[in-house]
Structures are given as structure tokens and as C-alpha cells.
């Protein structure tokens, strides 16, 4: 038995913007001129069970740097992590339910085979956040990824961001469908 029990989650509600976004601007841009790696944009819609945008939602991401390292004490390679990259990003989806991140393509974390980003979505109307992952459509080794292979084949596409060839900066489209035929795979780690 644990000594203490987890404090329960409650909804982020509709009014988080001023506290979580405005006071700490540019949290959806994870990079600066010193950040190593290939600059990419990830953007998508957060959609409810009626395919309507959830305009009071927020997406957070957590990813490795360009070499697959985290600037965190648990990473044995922390000393080699890019000091110009925190790995944490946050984007509100108030504009028509669209979130956007400017970041770098993560490197491959030692012990894994293909790049990915961890993601969480919060919203008014969600009493607790949901956890997912973003993989990239232009990565050949996705087929050998332990987590993707653990997901039923017909749902794997919901975890793969699609590269848009029309954009000058590599741009990946990744919609979050909270429900419906293409409900995004959410995890319970």
C-alpha cells in the first residue's frame, strides 16, 4: 500500500488561457537559433465526438532533442542533451480548435527505433487529460516500433502525423479525434 493516494484530477475548465498561455508566451515554439536539429511544424485540430473543434482545449508535448536525449536527471545521456532545447511545449487550440507547435524532429531515443513525441490533451469537458503519441509518416522504421505494433493495425494511423509536401518548412498534420470512427489511440502508461 502506498502511504498517500493520488490527488484526483479536475477539468482545466475554460479559463486557463491567461494563466497558462499568456503569462508564459511562445510556449508553442520550442526552438531558438541555437537549437540543433531539423525545424518542423506540427499542427492539427482537436475534435469532439461530433467532429466539432474543441476551442477550449490545450495540447502539451514532451520530446527528445535532435539526438534522442532529454535534459532530465533520469536520462543517462543528460550531459549530452541540447542546452538550447527544453523538450516541453504547450499550445492552446482556441483558434478554431487548432493547435500548432514549432519544434525539431526528435532524434531516436536509445533503445527505440523511430522518432515520436509524447502528447497530452486537456479541455473543458474533460475531467482528466488524455495521453497519446505523435509518430511521423516519413519514418520507415515505424513498422518496427514496439508501441505502434502493440496497437490494433486499423487504429495505428491515428498516431501518425502526415507530412504535408506543399509546405516549405516540413509540416505534419495531426488531428486529435476524441471520439468517433477515427478516435485517436489514447494510452494509460
Amino acid at each position: 500500500m502506498s502511504q498517500f493516494e493520488q490527488s484526483p484530477s479536475q477539468t482545466i475548465g475554460p479559463f486557463f488561457r491567461n494563466a497558462l498561455i499568456e503569462m508564459t508566451a511562445n510556449q508553442n515554439n520550442l526552438i531558438n537559433e541555437n537549437t540543433a536539429g531539423q525545424k518542423i511544424i506540427i499542427t492539427g485540430l482537436v475534435l469532439d465526438g461530433n467532429s466539432q473543434p474543441i476551442t477550449d482545449s490545450m495540447v502539451e508535448i514532451w520530446q527528445a532533442d535532435a539526438n534522442g536525449y532529454f535534459n532530465h536527471p533520469a536520462d543517462p545521456n543528460r550531459a549530452k542533451a541540447d542546452p538550447a532545447f527544453s523538450g516541453h511545449g504547450r499550445s492552446e487550440a482556441v483558434n478554431g480548435g487548432r493547435y500548432t507547435f514549432t519544434t525539431i524532429k526528435p532524434g531516436i531515443i536509445p533503445g527505440t527505433v523511430t522518432p515520436y513525441i509524447n502528447l497530452r490533451v486537456f479541455a473543458r469537458g474533460m475531467l482528466i487529460h488524455a495521453i497519446s503519441r505523435i509518430y511521423f509518416s516519413d519514418e520507415a522504421e515505424n513498422d518496427n516500433d514496439e508501441v505502434l505494433n502493440s496497437v490494433p493495425a486499423e487504429r495505428r494511423h491515428t498516431l501518425v502525423a502526415q507530412l504535408d509536401p506543399a509546405e516549405p518548412i516540413p509540416t505534419y498534420r495531426f488531428d486529435l479525434n476524441m471520439q468517433g470512427e477515427n478516435e485517436t489511440v489514447f494510452f494509460n502508461p
Binding site: D48, G49, N50, Q52, I54, W62, Q63, A64, F70, N71, H72, P73, A74, D75, S86, G87, H88, I109, P110, G111, T112, Y116, N118, A123, R124, G125, M126, L127, A130, I131, R133, E146, V147, S150, V151, M178, Q179, E183, T184, V185, F186, F187, N188, P189
Partner: peptide, 24 residues
Amino acid sequence: TAKRGPLKKLLPLPQKLSELTGPV
């Protein structure tokens, strides 16, 4: 909550370095 929470069962995710780290 009716239209906003996932309806399908959550899938397991092994706890690896990306789950056991976070922003400092």
C-alpha cells in the same frame, strides 16, 4: 464530457525514458 472524452479503452504504454522524464 459526453462528446469530449475518449470512448475506446485506453491502451497500455510501457514506461520508458520518455515517460520517466519531463521538463526541468
